[in-house]
Design a protein around this nucleic acid. Structure first.
Lengths: 120, 120
DNA sequence: TTGACATATTCCCATATCGGCATGTAATGT
DNA sequence: ACATTACATGCCGATATGGGAATATGTCAA
């Protein structure tokens, strides 16, 4: 088997940096495809393909306006990722605490050593 | 160009579901490779390869213990993902509020219609 | 040293990717 | 009807993937 399809879930879709840029841009307000092309300096077919992937996993919505299509980010779809990463939050906070504590421990010891060294 | 390497950044490394399972498992406490194999029911070479990817992007740490190797999740490395997804939080909250408001609006209107219909 | 155990790496294959380029389709204006 | 604008899709090639099977590396114990 090869790598999972980019359309298999949000994690795979968002692995592509350009798609992350597109999402960041479209979450503020909706944009036409042409605007994405000029602002992010990508080829039009490239943008359309990325939008296709994002659409397939529900990360963006489309709306037609004459010849234009207006895409916008469906922020709600990013929530599962946010929640998955959130399960690690307490652990990195613990890691930081442990680092802090070790640093303070080291400080105390060095202070003791210094006072001892002055003796000799 | 093909898809970006799985080792290119945390987003790509974490796109693989099995690697997410491994991270979830190793964040609680460190485990030997063999334990990962039996608990997640994967082939040993497969686990070693996944761990290699996770190591390359700094998502796990290793420590040798005799013939065994003890892997643990470096939770701190997941933080960038958490922060990226967090930038969308206010938007999905807004979306939810708008849905709520529309529902309440609808309720009010329907109540008005009902009171009107009783008249006829 | 040899053997057993634990883990890592290599090779092969089927598959999906992304970029570039060309072409297709849909809506508008004249 | 036709040309034009705005997107979408199709085809190609180079590349990296993950699974499977085999093999290599590393560590301990007798």
């Amino acid at each position: 088997m090869a790598r999972a399809a980019t359309t298999s879930d949000v994690f795979n879709a968002v692995a592509e940096p350009r798609r992350r840029e597109i999402l960041t841009m479209l979450v503020v307000r909706e944009h036409e495809v042409g605007e994405i092309v000029t602002i992010l300096r990508l080829d039009q077919p490239s943008v359309s393909k990325h939008l296709r992937v994002l659409r397939d996993v529900g990360l963006v919505n489309v709306r037609r306006n004459g010849r234009h299509k207006l895409y916008s980010t469906n922020a709600e779809a990013i929530r599962p990722m946010h929640e998955w990463t959130a399960t690690f939050e307490r652990y990195w906070k613990n890691q930081l605490n442990r680092i802090k504590e070790r640093a303070e421990e080291k400080m105390r010891k060095e202070r003791n050593n210094d006072s001892g060294n002055t003796k000799h």
